[in-house]
Design a binder for these strands. Sequence first.
DNA 1: CGTAGCTTTGATGTAGGTCAAGAAATGTGG
DNA 2: CCACATTTCTTGACCTACATCAAAGCTACG
Lengths: 249, 249
Amino acid sequence: MSQRKALKVQDSPFARKLSAFVRLSDGDLVAMSDLYRRRRKFAMGIDMIHQGQVERNAYVLASGWACSYKMLRSGSRQIVDFQIPGDFLGLRSVLFRTADHNVEPVTPVLASEVTYRDLIDSFGKTPRLATAVLWAASRDEAMVVEHLVDLGRRSATERTAHFLLELEARLRLVGLGDRKGYACPLSQYLLADALGLSAVHINRVLRELREEGLVTFQKGNVTFEDYDALVKLSGFDRDYLDHDGPLLP
Amino acid sequence: MSQRKALKVQDSPFARKLSAFVRLSDGDLVAMSDLYRRRRKFAMGIDMIHQGQVERNAYVLASGWACSYKMLRSGSRQIVDFQIPGDFLGLRSVLFRTADHNVEPVTPVLASEVTYRDLIDSFGKTPRLATAVLWAASRDEAMVVEHLVDLGRRSATERTAHFLLELEARLRLVGLGDRKGYACPLSQYLLADALGLSAVHINRVLRELREEGLVTFQKGNVTFEDYDALVKLSGFDRDYLDHDGPLLP
DNA sequence: CGTAGCTTTGATGTAGGTCAAGAAATGTGG
DNA sequence: CCACATTTCTTGACCTACATCAAAGCTACG
């Protein structure tokens, strides 16, 4: 029975992701299965997590996309990151007393709930899991850092190109894209809020990239016309995403 | 002997910092003392960590300031964060195979070296330490996220004010500042590279803030003339930094 | 006491914002 | 399967926040 469970967990995107960092034993996998009990659906428009909430829960995305963001008094918002299937979401809201950000579905979402107790208990049972989660959190931080460089020092065009390439690299890791392109449910408004630009300007940048024969962002699809030129243009270096093979044997 | 050691560690800024997240047992403190063996000095101008390096080590800052940054091909750089005494530095360079960023002293620095083995060994011995480090890393990520919001959606003035206030809050936690002000060894160039602005513009913003009677940034000192007005101007909310008392009993 | 790194200021240029308005999609109820 | 509503996309005209360039005064320290 627990064997069946373990196998099932092993096939989940989350287990696959953590396995990239730390080799997980059967015991680890069984402990992880406790994190997988409550499946929940979220429709678009309702926050999965909102700033200031005290319920300490997080989710592992099973299907659909979400975005985490912060609102400013001025009414503008900054999207910090998008979450794709397999991503952990809201870790800081479990770890801290109150959530410091919002998370909203971008498409209808299916996710497994992880409570504070689940997480702490499983850390107690299998310390390696804590290390694996630390690793996963650090990879996420590496992405946020790269995003910060985008906003601080790259032009609108470089930034947009870089962002589309990063998404491809992430999606490829979970089998949802390749260097030809991927399905992308983001609106230009979402893109604008992520890249710190206006929706109008994003539109112009996308047109330019399309007319230059580099990428097409249309009808929910990103298609790379010239992947290599795009990499060159944006200075994209996927090193910060790749860590082939478990780091902790 | 090990008792003396433990007490010494308990007094270190690093132990104080982690204790804010997780109550540490004597055993935990002894395990931590292993992380404190090698003290090293760094002069200005030599990187403590550089992008692509394979030696997997990190440091805990004992005294002085440092900054972590990324360089772009264009020659411009983005400072991701400053480290002040007590801060962990280069965690991602221990955890990953190669460092994805640089760290440079801003002043002469005294730091304790932490190697990959040290860290993994101590996690094995005391799982709570792994959890504590996860927490500390998450707090750091919260700061990077707020910095990202700065770059994406705040004006140069708001951004600068926000940044100066955040530094105050962090320095206050280690007893190096209060709402009157603090000693700040940063040049306007460093400020510019952190805030994604040009040094010239930073200078103008600082002048404006000074002439408005809000803050003075001069001669290595930040002095708040009107703390509350500055908070209002920048929309600063210190919640993301405060987590009074251990979260894990 | 000189020279190299900071800070300050002015003049001018430009990337990207804002406003406005029409055209395509997309969705919804009948 | 169509009519209407709503969101999303696209483009043009104009404007502003910040960059860049240039040059002069500071400071500090070898």
